[in-house]
Simulated assay, not measured.
Amino acid sequence: MKKLVIILTLFATCEFRMSDEDAREELNESVSIQFGDLEVGERNIHYAFSGNKRDFMIVFLHGSPGSWNAFIDFFKIDSLVKEFDVLAVDRPGFGNSGYGVSEPSLEKQAFLINEVLNQFPNKKKILIGHSLGGPIAARMAMDYPKAYHGMILVAPSIDPDMEEDQWYRSVIDTKFGAFFTPKEFEVSNSEILLLKDELELMEPLWYKIKIPTIVIHGSDDSLVPKENAAFAKRVLPDSMVNINMLEGVNHFIPWTHPQEILKAINQLTDGL
């Protein structure tokens, strides 16, 4: 019930999509930002990018629901955009990436986003995935092991045993429920309904991840249990994973504790 209250609050208070024009206005020319779209088969992936062909690219993957502008404040951080190229995507079904048409397959999402990143010549790419963006980052590291050099999982939904059946999701997945549900949440619901199955498909593949990984989680996360961090510790070698458990912190780390993500970026890039 607590999760449902949080979700209903998000229904009432959150606006997830932002036009490119509004993003430019918010950034107020403080950073040079570009927008792009890549057609891959029948899907379009929209992204925001700031950079100048530096060695490192930092790639942000948002949760569910969400869009690239969940990370817009990171584009405002001078120390980040002056040292690294920064890219954030609208995942399939969100923002301007085929809005309203979901893609529950984590493997397909990983493929589509990897195709976008193939356009960029940076020597080293660091993946950052928040919430449901976490397993997508992990899937990318599994399927394209030579393409990525570090990974930061922020409150990631990666343990299939932690995915609970929630009665209201089956209601949203009906014509009646969809009629009363904002489109972002309808798309989110469709991918979360199959997330447990998708994570079970990934379970035998964690051994493929050979890049240093930092997991940041809050001890008071009521949306994604902190036990997901322990799962990462079990499936990744000790030499590859570092867990940063933030005491008293909830799920919304990118907005409440961005400095922890910046510290993790510097930790990874300093070692590469």
Results as ranks from 00 to 15, higher is better:
residue 100 G to C: 04
residue 118 N to H: 14
residue 165 D to K: 11
residue 182 P to E: 06
residue 141 A to C: 13
residue 185 F to A: 05
residue 119 Q to M: 11
residue 76 K to F: 08
residue 158 I to R: 01
residue 158 I to S: 03
residue 179 F to T: 15
residue 188 S to R: 02
residue 137 A to Q: 06
residue 169 R to M: 13
residue 172 I to L: 09
residue 186 E to F: 14
residue 167 W to P: 14
residue 86 V to L: 03
residue 75 F to Y: 03
residue 112 L to A: 07
residue 153 L to G: 00
residue 125 K to T: 03
residue 165 D to Q: 13
residue 182 P to Q: 11
residue 153 L to D: 01
residue 151 M to H: 04
residue 142 M to E: 08
residue 110 A to W: 01
residue 133 G to T: 08
residue 184 E to F: 06
residue 136 I to P: 01
residue 146 K to S: 14
residue 102 S to F: 03
residue 173 D to Y: 10
residue 120 F to A: 05
residue 186 E to H: 15
residue 178 A to Q: 15
residue 101 V to P: 04
residue 145 P to C: 11
residue 93 G to D: 01
residue 145 P to A: 09
residue 139 R to I: 12
residue 177 G to M: 06
residue 92 P to Y: 01
residue 111 F to M: 14
residue 160 P to D: 07
residue 156 P to R: 03
residue 135 P to W: 00
residue 86 V to R: 00
residue 75 F to W: 01
residue 100 G to S: 04
residue 104 P to N: 06
residue 163 E to Y: 14
residue 174 T to L: 09
residue 79 S to M: 13
residue 132 L to T: 07
residue 162 M to R: 15
residue 137 A to E: 05
residue 87 L to Y: 02
residue 163 E to N: 15
residue 79 S to H: 13
residue 182 P to H: 07
residue 102 S to Y: 04
residue 140 M to G: 01
residue 124 K to F: 08
residue 141 A to Q: 00
residue 151 M to K: 05
residue 79 S to V: 12
residue 174 T to D: 10
residue 180 F to Y: 11
residue 108 K to F: 09
residue 135 P to V: 06
residue 92 P to C: 05
residue 121 P to E: 09
residue 97 S to I: 06
residue 166 Q to S: 15
residue 111 F to T: 11
residue 141 A to E: 03
residue 107 E to K: 10
residue 91 R to I: 00
residue 134 G to P: 02
residue 144 Y to L: 11
residue 117 L to E: 07
residue 147 A to Q: 13
residue 93 G to P: 03
residue 169 R to D: 12
residue 87 L to M: 08
